[in-house]
């Protein structure tokens, strides 16, 4: 059934547009404005045209090289998070009980990490992975591995990725669980009649039925891991060296640390455009031919 066309509906969305425009559009325009200017402090600005963007997109320059390095680190981080969290999330959702007293309890425990402030998540893992006072760090060192996330880049990466898996896999679990619960029992009965095994049931029934929620899960997890700032900043501060300096950490360093407004604004815009493009392409390809699907 098609929705009726009525432009008066704009009146209903007007408050949202006004508020979001105030909180988002004005800052975005400010960023665009800075991105074409240079400053020597004292609030004096000079027109710089597309200078920052040229420098940014040229890896041989200081800014460009730095941006590219941070971009690769962020992409690698997002890829690792998705590769671990999506399969693990599906697996845990499949083994969650579907009824009984255990359901509510399991769901509450699962959702717990999602409700912890991000810097507290960082604090938890910062402490947990420390070799002197942390259970994980001490246990790994007890096994004879010299684990020290403050000095070894690989260990820092393991800590940060483990933290993200701890923090966000539950989101994937809850999404998939909701998708699984929506499958009518009749589907399973039919599969049973056909003598389908667990793998066949998964491939033919559960996975297709989860497609919609999985799209949301992948989108949310990509966006949020690509934008991650607080948690790794608390744990490693971007170190050791620049090993875990992701794009947003670098951006805050440039903007609030060095007060290089023009550079920071140019980085912001390119950064934001990358997220938008990736999400748009993913969204368009997964929902193609499904009409209203993702909406």
């Amino acid at each position: 059934m098609a929705k009726p066309r009525d432009n008066r509906a704009w009146l209903l969305v007007l408050p949202v547009v006004a508020l979001v425009a105030f909180s988002a559009l004005i800052p975005v325009m400010t960023v665009v404005n800075y991105s074409v200017q240079d400053t020597f402090g004292n609030n004096q600005f000079f027109w710089n045209g597309t200078g920052w963007f040229k420098e940014l997109l040229d890896p041989s320059t200081d800014l460009g090289g730095r941006f590219l390095d941070a971009l690769w680190r962020t992409l690698l981080f997002s890829a690792l998070c998705l590769l671990i969290e999506i399969p693990l999330g599906i697996a845990v959702a499949l083994v969650l009980p579907r009824r009984g007293w255990g359901v509510a309890a399991a769901l509450v425990v699962l959702a717990l990490p999602l409700l912890i402030p991000w810097n507290v998540v960082g604090t938890i893992w910062q402490v947990f992975a420390r070799r002197d006072i942390g259970l994980l760090g001490a246990a790994v060192n007890g096994l004879g591995i010299d684990f020290n996330y403050a000095q070894v880049p690989l260990h820092a990466w393991i800590t940060v990725v483990a933290m993200d898996v701890w923090h966000w896999t539950s989101l994937v679990v809850l999404l998939c669980y909701a998708g699984l619960r929506a499958i009518p029992d009749a589907y399973y009965q039919a599969a049973k009649v056909d003598g389908a095994g667990a793998w066949a049931v998964f491939r033919a029934i559960q996975l297709p039925k989860m497609q919609r929620v999985l799209t949301i899960a992948v989108l949310l997890r990509f966006m949020d891991s690509f934008m991650i700032y607080t948690e790794p900043f608390v744990v490693t501060g971007g170190g050791p060296g620049n090993a875990t300096t992701f794009l947003s950490i670098d951006l805050v360093k440039i903007a609030l640390g060095q007060f290089d407004l023009g550079k920071a604004a140019a980085v912001s815009i390119v950064y934001n455009l990358i997220i938008l493009t990736v999400c748009w392409v993913f969204f368009a390809t997964t929902t193609r031919g499904q009409g209203e699907a993702g909406r």
């Binding site: 009726p4 009525d6 704009w10 988002a24 800075y34 700032y229 938008l276």
Partner: peptide
């Protein structure tokens, strides 16, 4: 959820695109 109106899909995507903007981008201008 109930109506189609001029620019509804674009508006919806624009709204969602704000969810994709890193807070780090907004920090200073905000």
């Amino acid at each position: 959820s109930r109506y189609r109106f001029l620019g509804d899909k674009h508006l919806f995507f624009w709204l969602l695109s704000n969810r994709m903007a890193p807070a780090a981008v907004f920090a200073l201008p905000v």
